[in-house]
Computed example of a mutant assay.
Amino acid sequence: MLSIRKNGNNSQSFPSLLDDIFGRELFNWENSNFSATSTTVPSINIKETAENFEVELAAPGMDKNDFKVTLDDNLLTISSAKKDEKETVEDNFTRREFSYQSFQRSFELPNNVVDEENIKAHYDNGLLQLVIPKKEEAKENKAPRVIEIS
């Protein structure tokens, strides 16, 4: 019988070390994506200025044709689907690898604010940038309304 004692210095015990070595990816049955690549949702920054909304999405390794950007009423949706297939054939074996990456992010923009006809999108060096201009009536800088407290 193997007896393992854990001392107070927080060092790893033998079973924990084995779990660490052998328990990665191969035995992760909860992960429905069995490809070598991990699936993540890209980070997005949204900035509002007086003139427009600026959206930046970090998606390195993608191509501009991998993206689909739609605006339905005031719902902005950015999505992507990328399939990669590699095959290696040598004398005594064939190895095929597949990977599939997809994501979808949706954001609700304020009603009747966006100038839909002048939206611009640009993808360069792993960064998708959208500039969503505001309508002229939405650009008006109104003084804040002061609410009297009774």
Rank of each mutant, 00 (worst) to 15 (best):
M1N: 04
L2V: 10
L2R: 09
R5C: 00
N7T: 11
N7I: 08
G8M: 12
N9D: 14
S11M: 10
S13M: 13
F14S: 07
P15N: 09
S16W: 04
L18A: 06
D19H: 06
D20A: 07
D20M: 08
D20P: 01
I21M: 09
F22Y: 07
E25V: 09
E25Q: 09
E25L: 03
F27C: 04
N28P: 01
N28K: 07
A36M: 11
S38T: 13
S38E: 12
T39R: 10
T40P: 00
V41S: 06
S43N: 06
I44W: 01
N45E: 15
I46Q: 02
K47C: 07
E48D: 05
T49E: 09
T49H: 04
T49G: 10
F53E: 04
E54V: 15
L57Q: 01
L57T: 04
A58L: 15
A59Y: 14
A59G: 02
P60T: 12
P60F: 08
G61E: 03
G61V: 03
G61M: 03
D63T: 11
K64A: 11
K64I: 14
K64R: 12
N65D: 10
D66K: 03
F67N: 03
K68C: 03
V69Y: 11
V69H: 11
L71C: 07
D72L: 06
D73S: 14
D73Y: 08
N74T: 07
L75K: 15
L75Q: 13
L75E: 12
L75G: 00
L76D: 01
T77E: 09
T77R: 09
I78E: 03
S79T: 05
S79C: 02
S80Y: 05
K86E: 14
T88G: 00
T88W: 06
E90I: 13
N92Y: 14
N92T: 08
F93G: 01
T94Q: 02
R95C: 01
R96N: 09
S99V: 01
S99D: 15
S99R: 05
S99W: 04
Y100E: 09
Y100I: 00
S102A: 14
F103I: 04
Q104S: 15
Q104N: 07
Q104E: 15
R105W: 00
S106V: 05
S106T: 10
E108P: 00
E108C: 00
L109N: 02
P110V: 10
P110S: 10
P110L: 08
N111Y: 11
V113S: 05
D115C: 12
D115M: 12
K120I: 13
K120L: 13
A121H: 11
H122K: 15
H122Q: 09
H122A: 10
D124S: 15
D124F: 13
D124Y: 13
N125K: 14
L127I: 14
L127N: 01
L128S: 07
L128N: 09
L128P: 08
L130F: 12
L130N: 11
V131N: 07
V131F: 02
K134L: 11
K134A: 04
E137A: 08
K139S: 05
P144L: 15
P144V: 11
I149H: 03
I149D: 05
S150R: 14
